[in-house]
Amino acid sequence: MIQENNDTGGGCGGTCDKSSCACPSDEMTSRRQFLQRASTVTIGAMSLTILPVAMGDGTESQLPMANGKGAPNEGDQLFGFLVDSDKCIGAGKCMTACRTENDVPEGSHRTWVERYVHFKDGTLQVDTVPETGFAGSGLPIIDPELVDRSFFVPKLCNQCEDAPCNQVCPVHASFTSPQGVELVDPDRCIGCGYCVQACPYGARFINPETNNADKCTWCYHRVMRNEKPACVEACPVDARVFGRLDDPNSEISKRIAKIPTDVLKEHLGTHPKTRYAGICGEVK
């Protein structure tokens, strides 16, 4: 075989007489032809199976949000959410409104409000506001004299652009809508709970009634008909602002342009679309 490749003008070299030489020139040629044709047929047959898949539905070519910014298609709305911690009074109306609007079962939350209390002795206490507010909840009252600084932080789904929950879903039931809202397909979800574990913000839970993954959708059904999300509607102090980021004249665009805002766990690279104003390091 090595001799053949030396390109000396023939299968067994120029000096070899065909009849006396032991070189099986004809046999070699036919075997090579056979292999060539066999490979041609095999590749042809394989392409028959690959072609329909490659040409199929074109999902590979139009992954939304793959560029990591903005609405995937021109003309789509892009929603945003601003939580103003400086304004929140911890009344808990948002939680009740969300529960009523979205049939969230008792014991689970799509949104909740945390309270951060820095004491003068340097300790930090973080607790969750009861649904009817602290007033009349029977929880121990903190003496304001001992407190250095305290504030409320409403939490909800951060609607990440590079959402870890989407990436782990084995059945593509978690997805980003063209408006940039993370949604769960209720007919597709198998309730495996991967996304619940993947979410670094603890925004997801398994709904015990439907056995599906459940999460804040910014009230997708309301905002698609130009209503505000239930929690925004219910907030008595405008601590929650919802609007369109693609419209520079919307209230949220103006407020984000005017006051410093931040996102939670920025170092994880999830690019959340829920922005927070008035929070400090211990929240992030």
Binding site: D57, P72, F175, L183, R188, E227, A234
Partner: peptide, 30 residues
Amino acid sequence: LVPETYGEQGPYRAAALEKLASKPSVLVSD
């Protein structure tokens, strides 16, 4: 195995968007 309307708008069932958006609102707006 691939569900209907999968991939029309992205790697998900496009029909889910309509289903989720058609849910009636409960809270009455001001």
